[in-house]
Design a protein around this nucleic acid. Structure first.
Length: 216
DNA sequence: AACTCGGGGCA
DNA sequence: TGCCCAGAGTT
């Protein structure tokens, strides 16, 4: 397991590789961000942005989404995977916002995860990006990179990964770290073809060493 | 813990 | 073409 200073070194190297890592979702306000993050499950943010560009022109309030039929909303997000479920979730989410939260997006993780289609990862992104609260959202990239680098244990659950990261990384760096790990995971430490041969962290990376040895 | 949803991106 | 993916809900 990597210690705190080793992790700090890794994060610094990732910053060199991806200096402008940031949330790539179009978000003009918390409500749009919730919709965008919900849509982003299991598909790239580039695709989400393509869809939300038109979507946010057409809909801007919970009432707007409820003013059309489910079928129409589904058609509007058709090009995104899992669109049928996501459209249903958006509708029931909007209903809940209106009945329980006065039409406003709640600002706490605990309230956010109660919304349909909003899980722990989505809630963390929202509080971090929309409300500026320190948060460390663990998605597949963050989980994979953390495990390969032995920042956490290989067998850790998603929740355990999040706890470990929060323990080993200073609070003020959580939000930055989240985006660094994601960029690093998406573009370099890829799930199927990690670029171990040109990785500045290879020396520290047990999984990378293993992979390089296997190649020979 | 395993399964399902799903169109688009990429090899 | 086939395989995989910035997750969440259900069983």
């Amino acid at each position: 397991m990597l210690n705190k200073s080793q992790i700090e070194y890794c994060l610094a190297e990732m910053e060199k590789m991806f200096p402008d890592a940031h949330c790539e979702l179009n978000h003009r306000n918390p409500f749009d961000l919730v919709i965008a993050v919900l849509l982003s499950a299991q598909c790239t943010d580039a695709l989400v942005n393509k869809v939300t560009k038109n979507l946010f022109e057409k809909y801007s309030t919970p009432e707007d989404y409820l003013s059309v039929s489910l079928e129409e909303l589904q058609q509007d997000i058709r090009s995104i995977g899992l669109y049928r479920n996501k459209a249903k979730n958006i509708r029931s989410l909007c209903e809940l916002l209106l009945t329980e939260y006065g039409g406003e997006v709640p600002q706490s993780r605990d309230e956010l995860v109660k919304l349909p289609g909003v899980g722990r990862k989505t809630a963390n992104v929202v509080v971090s990006v929309a409300f500026g609260e320190p948060a460390l959202a663990v998605d597949t990239h963050v989980e994979r990179v953390s495990k390969r680098l032995a920042i956490c244990r290989w067998k850790d659950s998603v929740l355990e990964v999040e706890k470990t990261l929060m323990r080993k990384i200073p609070k003020e760096k959580w939000s930055d770290t989240h985006h660094r790990l994601i960029f690093f995971g998406r573009y370099h430490c890829k799930a199927q073809s990690p670029q171990c041969g040109i990785c500045p962290l290879l020396e520290l990376c047990r999984e990378g060493q293993k992979r390089m040895k296997r190649k020979k």
